[in-house]
């Protein structure tokens, strides 16, 4: 499924708006057929990065290639689909007409459009609404028709920027199924989201960005097993103890007598226990567990802030 050249490849991609760095030295590689999660807090530069990759914004520096073509090349655009974060469309069109216009822009023949448009409408659950004006659609339906225009050309790479932000739980499940269906057909999915649960359920690999920089990237299961979340019931925790634990862990949080911390390595658990005892603390329980994506996300962001 994965060919030699990556679907998306960026090298030190940078974007500056009027002195403010939105994306700083973004280097990443997304393999073909992957479902790639691009995560980060609000304002981290995710949407700007996607805009550069889809030709909506020009990089200030660095380079990027999409399906082996330079970013913005018409050849690459022919093979990609894109759902913008702010999905606003020409609402005087009917759903079918809207997809017909985008199909024409893709250069699809009339016969191809007549076959593919009903398929795309059915894939997003709008088969019965193709003759209705977009202005009569709900926000969730607009997001669905936006996804339909993004997959209309059977893309080899699709960028979905927050594709479930307007959807109810059923709609979110439908989109997850659609993403899995796209991946099964060999399409690379670049999923830009801050809904970690969604990402955890569908993504093969993730990159976490903060302040325009990648702070963690890799195979999702490996990343989750690379860190350990430790919950310790401790009596007599002193500020000095917490200072020492902060040096050992990416994140440390104290609530009542419970200290929660994320550790790089499970082998650090005995060192944590030793430090607690050395500072006069009493250990009632120590519970190590695999870190959740949320824990990994917070840990990566906070570590990057240091």
């Amino acid at each position: 499924m994965t060919s030699r050249t990556p679907a998306v490849e960026t090298l030190n991609l940078r974007k500056v708006f009027g002195g403010k760095v939105a994306v700083d030295s973004l280097t990443l590689s997304v393999g073909r057929g992957e479902v790639f999660g691009f995560l980060g807090p609000n304002g981290a530069g995710k949407t700007t990065a996607v805009k550069m990759l889809t030709g909506l914004a020009r990089p200030t520096a660095g380079s990027a290639r999409i399906l082996s073509y330079p970013v913005g090349a018409v050849e690459a655009k022919r093979e990609i689909g894109y759902l913008p974060e702010l999905f606003r469309f020409h609402d005087w069109l009917e759903g079918y007409e809207f997809l017909d216009f985008h199909g024409r822009l893709y250069g699809m023949t009339g016969q191809h459009r007549r076959r593919r448009i009903p398929e795309a409408l059915a894939m997003v659950g709008l088969a019965a609404r193709g003759k209705d004006k977009l202005r009569t659609y709900s926000k969730g339906m607009l997001q669905r028709i936006g996804i339909a225009q993004a997959i209309l050309n059977d893309p080899r790479l699709v960028f979905l920027d927050e594709p479930t932000s307007a959807l109810d739980p059923i709609g979110r499940r439908d989109v997850r199924d659609l993403i899995r269906q796209l991946a099964a057909s060999g399409c690379t999915v670049f999923l830009n989201s801050h809904l970690l649960g969604e990402v955890e359920m569908v993504c093969d690999r993730v990159a976490i960005v903060n302040r325009g920089k990648v702070v963690a990237m890799g195979n999702l299961s490996e990343l989750l097993s690379s860190q350990t979340e430790l919950e310790a019931q401790v009596g007599g925790a002193t500020p000095l103890l917490l200072d020492e634990l902060e040096k050992m862990a990416a994140t440390v949080a104290l609530a009542d007598s419970t200290i929660t911390m994320s550790l790089k390595d499970k082998e650090m658990v005995p060192l944590v226990a030793e430090a607690i005892v050395r500072h006069g603390g009493k250990i009632y329980s120590l519970t190590p567990r695999h870190i959740s994506l949320e824990g990994l996300f917070v840990s990566a962001i906070e570590e990057g802030e240091r």
């Binding site: 889809t54 030709g55 909506l56 018409v74 050849e75 655009k77 022919r78 990609i80 894109y82 759902l83 913008p84 702010l86 999905f87 606003r88 469309f89 020409h90 985008h102 822009l105 893709y106 250069g107 936006g146 225009q149 960028f159």
Partner: peptide, 14 residues
């Protein structure tokens, strides 16, 4: 401003 071009410009159109 409305964002309608965001779905058009990434299409294979100069």
């Amino acid at each position: 401003e409305s964002g309608t071009l965001h779905a058009v410009v990434p299409k294979p159109v100069r």
